[in-house]
Amino acid sequence: MTVSNTVDQYTVLSGDRSKIKDLLCNRLTECGWRDEVRLLCRTILLEKGTGNSFTVEQLITEVTPKARTLVPDAVKKELLMKIRTILTENESEIEDAEEP
């Protein structure tokens, strides 16, 4: 069992995972990232979406790298800090869990 999996399981169990996810979604909406990506998708669809050959998968592969670069550093930083706080707060519990 890797550390990453333990962290995954722990955050899911404590409900922090869902809170972090919400925080990220909210921040991305607030900073306009959502709208930007929406616009990006729209432009791509207008360009290439003629005919029905263009699939969601294709759209995702095209949008993902661009969308990633659009995420503001402030959001990344805040999220990192938040995850760090959660993990340090629960460090002892996770370590307990780690022991065989």
Partner: peptide, 24 residues
């Protein structure tokens, strides 16, 4: 997807990983 109670979170924490690669 949306764990409605502690029991659900427990189930998700233990079982909800990829059957191919085991990743969460």
């Amino acid at each position: 997807a949306a764990c409605v109670n502690r029991d659900a979170r427990e189930k998700k924490a233990i079982h909800c990983n990829c059957f191919e690669c085991g990743s969460y």
